[in-house]
Simulated assay, not measured.
Amino acid sequence: MQSPARILVVDDHEDIRAPLAAFLGRYGLEVSTAVDGRQMHALLAREHFDLVLLDVMLPGEDGLSLCRHVHEHLGIPVILLTAMADPADRIAGLELGADDYVVKPFDPRELVARIRGIFRRMKLSQRQSRVLPEQISRYAFGNWLLDLARRELRGNDGQIVELSATEFRLLRTFVENANTVLSREKLLDLMNRGDAPVFDRSVDSQVSRLRKKLEDDARHPRLLRTAWGDGYLFSASVEAVPS
C-alpha cells in the first residue's frame, strides 16, 4: 500500500499553520510543521518530505532564501505562501526554484489542487525521463496528438489541424513544459532555439490563434490558460510517445 505524501508546512503564524495542517490531513496527506527556518532545516535533516509549503515572510532567514536552499540542495518541490500579490515577487520566487506561488488569503481546496498538480507533474516527468528526447516522435494530450516529424496536430477524429511554423513551435514548447507557468520571456527563450526568431509582440497573438485551434471555447480556455501577471500555463496531462 502506497504511503501518504509527506508535507512540511513552514509558517510562523499558529492561526495559519495548525488549521492548514489539519485541513491537509483530511485529504490523506501526512503533515509536519515548523515555525521558522531553523526548525525547517532540523526537520529536513532527519526526515523525508515530498513537498514544502513555505511562508515568504518568516522571522530570521526569509522564505525566498530557504526556497533557494531547498531547490539547490534537496530538490524537493516548494510552494511559496505569501501576502504579497505583486507579480514581481511571484516571479522572483519562481526564479529561485519555487514550483508554485499562492497568495494569502487562499482557498485551502485550491492549495490541495496545486499540491496534487505538482505530484502529477512529477510522476509524468519520471515516466518521460525513461524516454530519450530524440526518441520522442509524438505528444498525446487531451483529444489531440502532436506529430513532431510531420509537424501536424491531429484530433482523435483523425482531422488534421494546420499549424504555421510559429504555432507549431509554440505548441511544442507548451507540451514539453506542460503544467508550468511560462513567462513571455521564457517562451521566447525556448522558442528561439530554431532559426526563425519570434518577437515579443507576437506571443499574445500567436497564443490567441493557437487557442482558436485547440479549444472548444477560446474565450474560456481549458488547455492554454493565462496566468495573470506571469504568462501562460498549458494545463494538460501530456504523454510522450516514442518512435
Rank of each mutant, 00 (worst) to 15 (best):
Val103Gly: 07
Val78Ser: 03
Leu188Ser: 02
Asp157Ile: 05
Ile118Lys: 00
Arg193Trp: 12
Arg17His: 03
Ile160Met: 14
Pro87Asn: 09
Gly60Asn: 01
Gly60Thr: 11
Gly60Trp: 04
Leu53Ser: 01
Ser202Gln: 13
Gly155His: 14
Val161Gly: 09
Thr173Pro: 07
Arg209Ile: 00
Arg172Thr: 10
Ala42Thr: 12
Glu176Ser: 06
Ser208Asn: 14
Lys213Tyr: 08
Gly229Arg: 12
Gly229Asn: 08
Gln126Ser: 05
Asn177Phe: 10
Arg46Cys: 07
Gly93Lys: 13
Phe234Met: 11
Ala236Leu: 11
Leu148Ala: 03
Ile136Glu: 06
Pro108Ala: 05
Ser183Ala: 10
Ala236Asp: 10
Arg68Met: 04
Arg151Met: 09
Asn143Val: 04
Arg127Thr: 11
Arg127Leu: 13
Ala240Trp: 08
His41Glu: 14
Asp189Gly: 11
Phe141Cys: 06
Leu43Asn: 05
Phe168Ala: 06
Arg46Glu: 11
Phe106Cys: 00
Val56Gln: 07
Val203Ser: 05
Met122Leu: 14
Val112His: 02
His73Gly: 03
Ser129Gly: 01
Ala85Leu: 06
His73Cys: 09
Met122Phe: 00
Pro133Ser: 04
Val70His: 04
Asp100Thr: 06
Arg172Val: 08
Gln159Val: 14
Gly60Tyr: 07
Leu182Ala: 03
Glu176Gln: 10
Tyr27Leu: 04
Ala227Trp: 08
Arg90Tyr: 01
Asp204Asn: 11
Arg201Ser: 12
Glu61Leu: 07
Leu187Lys: 00
Ala5Leu: 10
Gln2Ala: 14
Tyr27Pro: 04
Pro242Arg: 05
Asp62Glu: 08
Leu224Val: 03
Leu96Arg: 15
Ile118Met: 00
Ala42Gln: 08
Gln159Asn: 11
Arg219Val: 09
Arg169Lys: 11
Lys186Glu: 15
Phe106Val: 01
Ala92Ile: 07
Thr166Glu: 15
Arg120Pro: 01
Arg150Phe: 08
Leu53Ile: 03
Arg138His: 12
Leu53His: 07
His13Asp: 13
Ser65Phe: 09
Arg109Lys: 14
Asp147Asn: 12
Pro19Gly: 02
Ala92Glu: 15
Pro108Glu: 03
Leu182Met: 04
Leu66Asp: 00
Asp230Ser: 15
His220Leu: 13
Ala85His: 09
Arg138Thr: 12
Leu111Ser: 03
Arg151Phe: 00
Glu176Arg: 03
Val238Glu: 10
Phe49Val: 09
Arg6Val: 03
Ala98Lys: 01
Val52Asp: 04
Glu152Pro: 00
Leu64Pro: 06
